[in-house]
Structures are given as C-alpha cells and as structure tokens.
Design a protein around this nucleic acid. Structure first.
Length: 580
RNA sequence: GGCCCCGUAGCUCAGGGGAUAGAGCGACCGCCUCCUAAGCGGUAGGUCACAGGUUCGAAUCCUGUCGGGGCCGCCA
C-alpha cells in the first residue's frame, strides 16, 4: 500500500474525468503532477501541484482548476478536505480512517509494505568495492562496500533484480608487485633474509602468504629467475588476497554475487571483441593526443596511439586503448568488462567508485553509451573520503597494515551494524567524519542508537503487552479496532509511516541509500515524541487498561517497528530488541 | 590550464523547481508518583558563498566569479 501514489492516481483519474466532461482540454500531460507531503504540516496531509502544472497548457488560471479539482476529489471517501492555497496548491486532508487503514495494511503486509514495482522486470548490476587484490581493504573501501550493499538492498526492495559484483583488478602491474612482495616473504619463511625493496608491499599480512607459499612449493622457487615463478606466485598470492577480502566483506555483512576477473579478459578475445564492436562504429582510430593542458609532463613527446573517440559521447579528450608498444592500456579491459556487463543483459548499471576515480566517469559512460546506443544507463557513484577520529582526535593507527586503518580495524572496534549505519548517514559525495567514540555513544546525537532505541521501545511494549496476557501477533493487531487511533499525535506517526513507500522509490530512483537512514531518524523522532506525550496524557500511552484501546495503540507501535526493521534491513543493520 | 564534487544556523549536516528553508550538537527555559528521562517540549540563531539568467515560482536548473577538496599522457 502506498497512500501517496494511491492519492496521486486519484488526482490523475479525476483530471481525466474533468477532461472527459469538458472541464479541461483533452490530452493534457499529467506526468509532472505530484502528490507530496507539504513542507508545513499545517497545510494538510498532502499537497498537489496539479493546477499549477496544468494551468498553462489548459489555458486557465491555476486557482480555478484547483477549485474544480477540489470539488470532485471531495467525493472520494478518503478525502476529508481539499483547500486551494497560495498560487494554486491544492491541500488535501485525509480522513482518520485512511490512516487507520494504513496501519492495518502495514501489519498485514509486513516487510512487503514499502516494496515498490518501479524496478519490476529490470535487471541492474551494482559493481562496488573492486579493491585491488594486493592487501587488506581500508576504511574507504568499507564505505564503498556499505554504500553498494545498501544500494543493492534498496534496489531489490524497489523491485529490481540485482546483481552485486566485484571487479578484481588482477591484470595490471600491481599484482606483479604483489607477487614479488610475497616472494620475499616466501624466502623469509624459509629462513632467507627478505629484500623488501622500495616499491614492494611491506605489510605484515604477506608473512602468512609467504609461509603458505613455502608450504606449497618448498625450496623449489629459491634462487630461480623471476620468470620461473612470477605467474604461479602471482596467482597464489592474488587468491590469498581475495580470500582475505571476502572474509573482510563478510565481517561487514557484505556478500557478492559475482566476482569478475580483469585477467580473465586477456587472452580470451574479449578485449578484441569489444574493441572490434567500437571499431565497427568508427569510434577507434590511430592518432596523437595533445599534452594535458597546463600540466605538461617534462618527458612529454607526441606519440601515435590507438584511441577511442569518447569525445563523441561527452568526454573531454579521446582516450588511448593501446600503449605505443602495442599492449593494452588499463582502459581496454575496462571497455571489455563493461561490454561484458552489457552483453549479460542488464538494463541498468551502477558503479561505485572512490572519489579518486572521478576522472574515469566520462570515459566509462562514453563506452556504455557507445556500446548500447544509449539504451543502458550507467550511474557512477563516487564515494568521498572517510576521516577517522577518536574523541575528536585524528585517528590513523592500524593494527594490521601499519600505515592505514583497515576495514577490519573498524568492524572489530565498533561492529558491523554501527559501521554500516554511520557510513550511510551522509550522502556519497560528501566527506564523512567517523569518530570511533561518538558512534558508540548512547545518546540522541548518535543516530544509530536513537533509531535502535525506538525499535527497542516497540519491542518493550510488545513484551509487556504479551506478559499482560494480550494476543499481540500481527494478525491479532491487524484485527484490532483501529478506529480508536484518532488522536492527532497518533495520526501524525501514521502519516510518517505512510511516507515510507514513497521514500523507498525516491531513494531508489536516485541511487541514494542515505535517504533511508535519514528517514529512519525522522520516524524514530516521531515515535519518541508520541511516547513522551504519554507522560502528560496517559490516554496516549501504548498500554491501556482497556484491552481494545491497548491493541489499537500497540498496533501503531508494531507498525512503526515493522517499518524501522524494514529500513534497517535495507541498510543491512539488525534491529535490537532491547538496549543494554 | 581542463574536468568532477562541495559551499545552507556558531559547529556537523539534511532538503536539490513549490508555500513562512529543516534536524542534531552547542546556548537558554521547561517536563519523571507515569509503558526505558539513554528521552520529550519550547526559545534564540539564516543575504541557502556572490552576480546574472530561465521560470507563474529558484537554496534547488543554466552561465560566470570567488572559496575548499579531488583527479588529470602509455601508472593502477
């Protein structure tokens, strides 16, 4: 049940009726008609801009259209009042029965309340994390992981068929560096002095890889030339790194559906096939790039390269796909990878990147636009930096990696639920301050705690009611006499609950999971407010002497609990039953 | 130099064509005989960086300027 879309449908149908009766010209486009909660609740429950949007095409003053629309809407049993306001808003109030019906619907639908069909029949690929398999993930990866996973949950809730995907960057020089670093640890494990040269990865996490290599290969690789062992050690170490990354993701509650390997794109013809596709469209050519403006490298010299005409799709310059020695640039497998995603039939692609990859947005969008003729949208979400603090002091120490704070450090210290919620309390394109002390604080300026507290209070009410002998299953509560929920403060909470399905759609359309976190905070606030009004007005307490009155109020509390659980579920956070 | 993101209350941030711009923190004033006061209510606090433009209507969209951050040849 989605009251906002229901009422919008009513408005649009009513407008259609007006057109049929000659009250409006036929064929008006109602796509821009909205039904929203007004910013000022004093204006009503819902407001529609229909009259203002249609005024110009209909050739009639907005307030006149609004008045005519109001008269017709009032015949609907849900509508209590319809008032023209301001430049032509139509402010609607719904009868209490509409809100009571909403509470009942939440109890009947459970977590399905808030599901949307905007994604029905559409397959979306969410690529996220994609950390290089050369070491443990850092906090920045944690934020990207949380964002991507919550976004995937959100899109699923909105009806999409979602694939979570990790692109393993195992095809470049960095995995060779990994192999050489691991090789030194292998020598170390066998009692030789390791030579961890400048440029190799010094982290302790490779010691275990070296020991595993020693167990696997014994002395066989000692004193052998690099070309004898590089490939084997690289594969071995990369697999070890990916196993570690999977464990770290699991600790955060993140599970991928697909791991795609960059290396697997080479030597299988996939790069060639993707390039051939672009070449057939006349988008590949041999040419010489200008030096980058204002920052010409000292050793710059013009070279002819194989280029992709990404400027035809909004990029700033064409991009090289082959180095001057004939080998592929890093961009080439990227083209092949996105070609592969497109070929797998996704209707929509989302990439979650660190903000330092901002320079790749235009060229990747160009690739997908070129390969699909613009049919498949690619949205790239850039995740800004996480700044770590502890009691306000910058925090840089790491237990494992030495030089940077790892994802695991964070999860071990504050737990996956707190990590996830806090990292979703900011838009992806805003930097995030993460204070290890503050996120564990038990006060209302800690949104995680505040939302959990609201859920715990709901659970507390249910426990006490059950202890008092009331039947508080969702079915029993849905059958309660909800007409008793008629106080303004109770209806205000119901109004907030009614926004949930709308919020899911807005958040899903914009790929913005943070909206869920902010909504939950608002909802919790509304619930805490009602709770406290019970102090002054005992008639507003959830537990009443009269069982029938109790059941109605408990139904409202439980409905709130259902929505909080559903929202936390999208964020990947487990709701708590009691605070400790 | 070019491109991307950001600029909203003292601080941290939501809102991103709609009415009198919101929340938390901090400040001030109230509320427990009462389902968890780890909470709630209220007051004070704004040139939505600046200047143009589009629109019935701009914090929101466009252009430019200023300020902060990021990225920028075959690296990954």
């Amino acid at each position: 049940m989605n009251l906002f879309s229901d009422i919008r449908n009513l408005v649009v149908e009513t407008l259609g009726g007006m057109a049929a009766d000659g009250a409006l010209p036929p064929g008006l486009d109602t796509a821009a008609v909205t039904v929203e909660p007004p910013r000022d609740p004093g204006h009503g429950d819902m407001a529609t801009n229909a009259a203002m949007v249609l005024s110009k095409p209909a050739g009639r003053p907005p307030r006149e259209i609004a008045a005519a629309l109001a008269a017709r809407l009032l015949t609907d049993p849900r509508i209590a009042s319809a008032e023209v306001a301001g430049p032509g808003f139509l402010n609607l109030r719904l009868r209490p029965s509409a809100w009571q019906g909403l509470v009942r619907a939440i109890l009947e639908e459970g977590f399905a309340f808030g599901r949307s069909r905007i994604g029905t029949g559409l397959r979306v690929n969410v690529e996220f994390v994609s950390a290089n398999p050369t070491g443990p993930m850092h906090v920045g990866h944690a934020r990207g992981a949380v964002f991507g996973d919550a976004l995937a949950n959100l899109l699923h809730h909105a009806g999409y068929e979602v694939t979570r995907e990790y692109y393993i960057n195992d095809g470049g020089a960095q995995v060779d560096v990994l192999a050489r670093s691991a090789y030194e640890r292998y020598r170390e494990a066998l009692g030789y002095a390791p030579e961890i040269a400048e440029g190799l990865y010094p982290g302790d996490y490779l010691i275990a890889v070296g020991e595993a290599l020693a167990e696997e290969f014994g002395e066989a690789l000692i004193d052998q030339p690099e070309e004898m062992w590089l490939s084997d050690v690289r594969e071995f170490a990369t697999e070890r790194m990916m196993a570690m990354i999977r464990e770290d993701l699991a600790a955060l509650g993140v599970r991928m559906d697909v791991y795609s390997s960059e290396r697997a794109l080479y030597d299988t013809g996939q790069i060639e096939a993707a390039i051939a596709r672009l070449r057939a469209m006349g988008l590949i050519y041999e040419g010489v790039l200008e030096p980058p403006k204002g920052k010409t490298p000292e050793d710059w010299e013009p070279r002819e390269q194989t280029l992709f005409r990404s400027t035809a799709f909004g990029d700033d310059v064409d991009r090289p796909i082959r180095k001057s020695d004939g080998s592929w640039t890093y961009f080439a497998p990227d083209i092949a990878y996105h070609f592969d995603k497109v070929e797998r039939g996704f209707d929509m692609l989302v990439n979650v990147f660190g903000a330092d990859h901002g320079g790749y947005v235009k060229r990747l969008k160009a690739v997908v636009a070129a390969l699909t003729g613009g049919r498949v949208p690619l949205d790239i979400k850039l995740i800004q930096l996480v700044k770590l603090y502890k009691n306000g002091e910058p925090y840089k120490m790491s237990k494992r990696a030495g030089t940077f704070v790892t994802l695991r450090d964070v999860v071990d210290e504050v737990g996956p639920d707190v990590t996830r919620f806090v990292m979703l309390t900011r838009k992806n394109d805003a930097p995030l301050d993460f204070d290890f002390a503050k996120v564990l604080e038990q006060s209302k300026d800690n949104p995680v705690w505040y939302v959990q507290y609201a859920h715990a209070r709901v659970s507390s009410v249910l426990r006490k009611a059950a202890a008092a002998g009331l039947e508080v299953s969702d079915a029993a509560l849905a059958a309660a006499d909800l007409a008793r929920l008629d106080h303004e403060a109770e209806l205000a909470l119901a109004r907030k609950l009614a926004e949930w399905p709308r919020l899911v759609e807005i958040a899903a359309r914009g790929n913005e999971p943070h909206r869920v976190a902010f909504y939950l905070y608002d909802l919790a606030s509304e619930f805490h407010a009602l709770w406290n009004r019970g102090n002054e007005e005992p008639g507003l307490r959830f537990l009443q002497d009269d069982p029938a009155a109790s059941l109605a109020k408990i139904a409202l509390a439980r409905a709130t609990g259902v929505v909080i659980s559903a929202g936390l579920g999208i964020l990947g956070v487990a709701p708590v039953e009691e605070m400790r």
